[in-house]
Design a protein around this nucleic acid. Structure first.
Length: 117
DNA sequence: TGTTTGACCACGG
DNA sequence: GCCGTGGCCAAAC
């Protein structure tokens, strides 16, 4: 049944899930860490993301730090509310101190990290 | 089976 | 410093 190997989006879910609270990351970092070869795959993976997966997609923003995926949430304001709830200040749909709150999986988790904790 | 789109990023002008 | 185009891989139509 579920013997299917974890697809690339499963890996994206795992990485996003490892993102600490109050931190944000971008699609490129995930794509580069998972060697997807295309940042779009990270976004596409989150497109299949659903609330039941427990994936904090609100912590994932584009390279500009903009909440590009807010329109994909149940409510466009929910993403900002969630970020502010975690202590991340959002202004004009952009993460404040984005570079400061940026969380790099390859840097924090390391190359030896695997989805299976 | 081929084409189009997609929550993007990097580069060039 | 901002805008436009190309490239990347995968899934949906």
């Amino acid at each position: 049944m579920n013997k299917e190997i974890p697809s690339y989006f499963d890996l994206v879910y795992a990485v996003v899930r490892q993102v600490p609270r109050g931190r944000v990351t971008n699609y490129g970092a995930i794509a580069d860490f998972l060697a997807l070869g295309a940042s779009r795959m990270a976004g596409w993976a989150l497109n299949n993301c659903k609330p039941g997966d427990g994936v904090p997609a609100h912590r994932v923003v584009n390279r500009k730090g903009e909440l590009s995926g807010r329109h994909h949430f149940p409510t466009p304001t929910m993403m900002q509310e969630l970020l502010e709830n975690e202590g991340v200040k959002v202004e004009n749909d952009r993460v404040v101190e984005y570079e400061k709150l940026f969380w790099s999986p390859a840097k924090e988790l390391g190359e030896g990290w695997e989805a299976f904790d």
